[in-house]
């Protein structure tokens, strides 16, 4: 086997080890590089800034432990932004794990920024994802009745944070953080008929198709995965997990590109030699 053939058949375990090393290196020793803020991320920031204070935002949590590294920093950055600007928000989870993750995050940020549960923010708890379409037909007309209770089983009508919130017209922003890509339902049944602004926090896998909605004005901005969260953290002037992880994100991307190039060099040279021999 020539060296070029070997280049095409590197053992997978060597690649795994290399990947671990290039991720660990920047985390341990640091790799500071400027984080660029794209217009899509600025769109999210501006939408939160523009939301009127008498309205409420809904942060939709449709992700679990599987994509926690991408979606949790997005949710935390959004929560922090709302709390910093004294704007009310509710969390609505369509994933049982996401329900707890988002509740725990909100409790930590709220205690840090001296906010009160039930007055400044509320968690509406988990709802079955299969019921999303029927829920979207009903809750815009009577939020309190159709959502019913919060995560602790308290009727929403008893919480001061819900004062003045009756219909979808009192909702100033929907922030959809998801690993599932159910954005189209929110656009179809809420943004379409009622024009409620939406910002989107998908996992990076779904970033490419989200630009379709961004161009059509159906979403005001988007946070592409963990990198989007890092850019958002930069706008908020805070270094969270996403910011600390960007170095490792860069190094791992470089490794993948290097491996693809190596594989292709081996492939091209081997093919050329075979052609010459033939």
């Amino acid at each position: 086997m020539t060296i070029f053939e070997k280049l095409q058949h590197i053992d997978r375990r060597i690649m795994y080890l290399l990947l671990l090393l290039v991720i660990a290196w920047p985390l341990i020793w640091g790799m500071d590089m400027p984080i660029m803020v794209s217009p899509a991320v600025k769109g999210v920031y501006n939408a939160v800034e523009k939301m009127p204070k008498d309205k409420m935002a809904i942060i939709i949590v449709y992700w679990g432990s599987g994509t926690i590294a991408e979606n949790r920093p997005q949710v935390e950055a959004l929560m922090r932004h709302f709390m910093m600007r004294n704007k009310r928000f509710a969390v609505l989870a369509f994933d049982p794990q996401g329900s707890k993750f988002s509740y725990d995050s909100a409790k930590i940020i709220s205690s840090e920024l001296h906010k009160t549960y039930g007055k400044d923010w509320v968690h509406w708890g988990f709802r079955p994802p299969a019921n999303l379409i029927p829920l979207l037909q009903s809750f815009p007309h009577d939020v309190i009745k159709n959502i019913g209770t919060d995560i602790n089983g308290t009727p929403l009508g008893k919480l001061p944070v819900m004062n003045g919130i009756k219909t979808i017209k009192d909702i100033g922003l929907l922030a959809d953080t998801t690993s599932v890509g159910e954005l189209d339902y929110w656009i179809a049944y809420v943004h379409g008929p009622y024009r409620t602004p939406i910002v989107y926090g998908p996992t990076a896998v779904m970033t490419a198709d989200a630009f379709n909605s961004l161009d059509a004005g159906q979403i005001n901005g988007l946070l592409p995965g963990m990198q989007g969260a890092a850019a958002y953290e930069k706008m908020l002037g805070r270094k969270g997990f996403a910011t600390k992880a960007t170095g490792a994100l860069s190094s791992s991307h470089l490794l993948i590109i290097a491996l693809i190039i190596l594989g292709n060099i081996g492939y091209i040279i081997t093919r050329r030699r075979q052609e010459q021999q033939a």
Binding site: I23, M226, A245, A248
Partner: peptide, 11 residues
């Protein structure tokens, strides 16, 4: 980018 993010989270 998505897959790397999840891995970085665990590391």
């Amino acid at each position: 980018m998505a897959r790397m993010s999840l891995l970085i989270g665990r590391v």
